[in-house]
Amino acid sequence: MTVIKIEKRKPVWPLILGIGVVAVLFYFFSFNDKEETVQEVQFTEDLIGVTEFNRTVAAYVNFINEDTLKMEYNDSFSKEAFLRLVDATNAMAEEINVDISANMARVVKYVNRIKADPIETAHADDFRKAADILTNAVLKSMQQSKYPDLASDIVELDNASASVDPKKLILDQTYQVKTYFREAADLLLKMN
C-alpha cells in the first residue's frame, strides 16, 4: 500500500503559551527562592551572633551596634563599652586558648582609671594607653596566634587607636573613640 498521508500541524501557540507560563512560574519561584535564601542567610547571621558566638563577644558587638548617638559623646557609653570590650577580649582569648592575662591586667588598670576620671577634665591619655595595649599587646597576639589573615584588621584597629590624641579631652574626640570601638567589634566578629 503506497500511501503518504498528510496532517495539519499542531498549532504552536499553546506550546508558546505553555512555555511562557512555565517561564513565569520559574521566575516567580526563583524570585521566592532568592527571598528565602536571603532570609536563611540573615537567620544564619543571627544564629552566629546570638548562639554560636561567644555570648560575651556578642554582647559587646550588639552594644556597639546599638549606639545611635554617633556625634554626641556619652561618658557612660564609653566606659561601659570599654568594660565590655575587655570582657569580650577575655572571652575570645579563652575560646582560642591564648593567654593574655598579663597584658590584659595592664589594660584593666587604665580602664579603671577611665572609670574614675570626671568627664569634664578627663584627657584621652588613659583611653589611648588602654587602647594601645589592648590592640598591640593583646589582640595582636591573638591574631598572630590564630588569625594570620586578620593582620590588616589589627592595623586598622591600631590606626583607630592612634587617631585618639592623648593630650586632648576625650569628650572632644567622640568620633575617634567610637571608631576604635567599632573596629574592635569588627575584629572580634571576624575572630569568631
Binding site: 500511501v3 503518504i4 498521508k5 498528510i6 496532517e7 495539519k8 500541524r9
Partner: peptide, 17 residues
C-alpha cells in the same frame, strides 16, 4: 505542493520521501 501548505506536514508514521 506540500510546501505551499505551511499548516500541513507528512503525517507521523508515514515516510517523507
Amino acid at each position: 505542493y506540500l510546501y505551499e501548505l505551511p499548516d500541513y506536514k507528512v503525517a507521523s508514521d508515514y515516510s517523507d520521501v
